[in-house]
């Protein structure tokens, strides 16, 4: 479908790491887990706005670099006793290329 935009090769994102992705209006954090799953979330922690793309990725979660809030990459929900939610975006990996679909908003904060 035309709404899927190729944005990067999978190997441009380090395993258990992240890249920041800039669009004209958005800052998106692109995560790659240890199992090579890829997730896209708004690059802004619901707590104090920390850049999630700079956090440590572990299992399917990222820890915000500012105050260590843990965010589930799948749902965008904040884990544990803290509350909050981050926008997630649809991504898929096909033959080593990562595609993003901004038309399909998976959840709203």
């Amino acid at each position: 479908m035309s709404d899927w935009i190729a944005i990067a090769k999978l190997n441009e994102i380090p395993p258990m790491g992240a890249r920041k992705l800039l669009t004209e209006t958005l800052e998106i954090a692109l995560f790659r887990t240890g199992n090579d799953e890829v997730f896209a979330l708004r690059d802004r922690c619901p707590h104090r706005g920390g850049p999630l793309s700079q956090g440590i990725v572990h299992s399917n979660a990222v820890s915000c670099p500012l105050h260590n809030w843990k965010i589930d990459l799948q749902s965008g929900e904040v884990q544990g006793p803290d509350d909050g939610c981050v926008n997630t975006y649809a991504v898929k990996v096909d033959e080593g290329v990562v595609y993003l679909n901004l038309a399909l908003a998976e959840s709203a904060a």
């Binding site: 935009i5 190729a6 944005i7 990067a8 920041k20 992705l21 800039l22 669009t23 004209e24």
Partner: peptide, 10 residues
Amino acid sequence: PLHINQMRAV
């Protein structure tokens, strides 16, 4: 950072 427009062009 990655840029969305760049990659589309590539």
